[in-house]
Amino acid sequence: MPYVLVLYYSRFGSVAALAAEIAQGIDQVPGIEARVRTVPSVSPDFDPDATDIPADGPLFCTEDDFALTSAIALGSPGRFGNMAAPLKYFLEQTTGSWVSGRLVGKPATVFTSTTTPHGGQESTLLSMINPLLHHGMLITGVPFTEPGLHETIGGGSPYGVSHIAGESHNALHPELKNLARHQGARLATYALRLMNETKTRQY
């Protein structure tokens, strides 16, 4: 079964919650499934060779998870208007997939959460788009024709779903959950279309 990699880093759970909703949207599309993965934290005593499996929650992403996917949904909290260091560190280890062109022509999307409304959400989303473009991926966001983009009060962006968590790390608003599911389903649908098209035509 082909899969969409939902790859994220989450510190307090908001990005993980978005990832779960996006995965639900992916799983609503017949013929493809979501594969949810995370990355280890980076700290001064970080061991890049550690292979510990998390005690609970999603597994850490492997090179094969990344290279063999049909599409990617990439998520991170905002850090000074940029993606978090753990996710950036992981992406910097994907040179093999870049050199081989494994992800060229595959669709991708991004999502984020910040504490404040002005926490650099759009620049964080753009920072995640940059490496995906270097991999040759086709970026898809959330078009303004999607009604939920006009209804959500807790975030939302045409670059990708975004959540304003607040100091208390508030739960996702129902409108935002629907928007995230739509984003996941849209990504999965495009992945299947491109897979079927590339069977008969190479770009």
Rank of each mutant, 00 (worst) to 15 (best):
Q24F: 00
I26M: 03
Q28A: 15
V29F: 05
V29E: 04
P30G: 03
P30W: 02
P30C: 07
I32D: 05
E33W: 01
E33R: 14
A34W: 05
R35T: 02
R35K: 13
V36C: 00
V36K: 06
V39H: 02
S41L: 10
S41I: 11
S43T: 13
S43N: 12
S43I: 00
D45W: 05
F46H: 13
F46T: 06
D49S: 14
T51Q: 12
T51N: 06
D52R: 07
I53D: 06
P54R: 07
A55F: 07
D56S: 15
L59Q: 11
T62Q: 08
T62H: 07
E63R: 13
E63F: 06
E63I: 12
E63K: 14
D64V: 13
D64M: 11
D65G: 08
A67C: 04
L68R: 14
T69A: 15
A71I: 14
A73E: 13
A73C: 11
G75W: 04
G75C: 10
G78A: 15
R79N: 15
G81L: 12
G81E: 08
N82M: 14
A84H: 09
A85S: 14
P86D: 02
Y89S: 10
E92K: 05
T94G: 01
T94V: 09
T95P: 00
T95Q: 10
G96D: 08
S97I: 03
S97L: 00
W98A: 12
V99A: 10
S100A: 14
S100D: 14
G101E: 03
R102P: 01
R102A: 14
R102N: 09
L103E: 01
L103T: 04
V104F: 12
G105I: 03
K106I: 07
K106N: 09
P107F: 05
T109E: 01
T109K: 05
T109V: 10
V110F: 04
V110N: 05
F111W: 00
F111A: 05
F111C: 03
T112H: 02
T112Y: 03
T112E: 04
S113Y: 04
T114R: 08
T115D: 01
T115F: 08
T116Q: 11
H118G: 09
Q121H: 15
Q121P: 02
E122S: 05
S123R: 15
S123Y: 07
L125V: 11
L126A: 09
